[in-house]
């Protein structure tokens, strides 16, 4: 049997679907159209609201394969890997994409190793190679200094994880129709070794900065922990979240989940604010694919200005309070 079809892995959370499930479909739709193949959203997990499942079709999927069971309620990589491998072996997709989330980046290498498939991490661009029809996977590497394009010419499926927020979901199309295919969970695929004991939802400073459209970050120039309050004020007004440079996290002004950069998270928001961040290459690696970058720094030679769409050379302790004050009037 030939390998055919483009699969994207949907991620369930507490009965809902994460935004990345829909972002992946807009990626997958393009590839499937180019290959003239079916786009399938694969959902492994506990029970998910029906309307959200239907939304997968309205936002691009031709088919949704659902493996639903209470035993799949929590992400346990061993079991999820067994289920996905079982599906891949029986249905033979040509391409499998997942989001480069903590679970996606755990599941995909687990599966790829076992089935000896090529896997490319954290892609920002995907395309189809002319003539061969191979998937071209482009990703930043070496701290964002290079963009490498990678393919897996001889192994199938071709697997990749895709950076969250690097594409927008397609608009809902009420006229779209598709197939919902439920596959029974075979209990022999359940691996009981690892047990999920507890989920601890983070506080405001544990919020998922990768999922936000607006990230307001502070660096060494913030001088102390208390000053981060100004960033939270700005973030609240704009409906965003607060991030931080490594310097700020190492000084205890922000938490590790907020860290943007090479040893933290990579974010691709609509807008990224950098206050008191000089723009070390490690930091740039984590944010330079943001759509719009706005920065404030006292040093006019700071590297951050090179990647900025709008910059103010000045004292953030003057700029930020005034900006917050003026914005408060604007957004009221």
């Amino acid at each position: 049997m030939e390998y055919k079809g483009v699969w994207t892995i949907a991620e369930a959370y507490e009965g809902d679907l994460k935004a990345v499930s829909f972002e992946l479909l807009s990626r997958g739709r393009k590839l499937a159209d180019e290959l003239n193949e079916e786009l399938v959203s694969v959902l492994i997990g506990g029970k998910v609201k029906e309307e959200r499942v239907n939304e997968l079709i309205k936002r691009g999927a031709d088919r949704v394969i659902i493996v639903e069971d209470q035993l799949l309620d929590r992400f346990i990589v061993e079991t999820y890997s067994n289920v996905l491998i079982d599906l891949i072996k029986s249905k033979k997709p040509e391409i499998v994409l997942s989001a480069a989330t903590v679970n996606g980046r755990t599941l995909m290498p687990h599966v790829a190793m076992k089935i000896h498939a090529g896997l490319t991490a954290d892609c920002t661009e995907l395309g189809i190679e002319e003539k061969t029809g191979n998937l071209l996977q482009t990703r930043p590497a070496i701290g964002g200094n290079i963009l490498a394009t990678i393919k897996s010419p001889d192994s199938r499926p071709q697997m990749a994880t895709v950076r969250p927020k690097s594409s927008r979901p397609l608009e809902i199309d009420e006229t779209r129709t598709g197939v919902i295919e439920r596959v029974a969970f075979q209990k022999n695929l359940f691996d009981s070794r690892v047990k999920h004991l507890e989920t601890i939802i983070g506080g405001e400073d544990d919020v998922n900065i990768q999922e936000s459209d607006i990230v307001v970050s502070g660096g060494k120039g913030m001088k102390k922990s208390d000053n981060f309050k100004m960033l939270y004020d700005l973030a609240h007004m704009l409906g965003g979240v607060v991030g931080a440079s490594r310097d700020a996290v190492d000084r205890g002004w922000a938490k590790y989940p907020q860290q943007v950069g090479l040893s933290g998270k990579t974010v691709t928001p609509n807008v990224y604010f950098a206050f008191g961040i000089s723009g070390a290459i490690q930091h740039l690696a984590g944010m330079k694919t943001a759509e719009t970058i706005i920065s404030v720094n006292t040093d006019e030679d700071a590297t951050i200005f090179q990647v900025s769409d709008f910059g103010i050379v000045g004292d953030l302790f003057e700029v930020l309070p005034l900006l917050n004050e003026k914005l408060a009037k604007e957004v009221k």
Binding site: A112, L119, L147, I150, S152, F305, Q306, G311
Partner: peptide
Amino acid sequence: GSPTRVVKIETPKVTRGGKILKV
């Protein structure tokens, strides 16, 4: 033994040339 192949390497453009104002 590697299923993946590097097709090409590019150096992305860093500079955005945005508007920079001085206070």
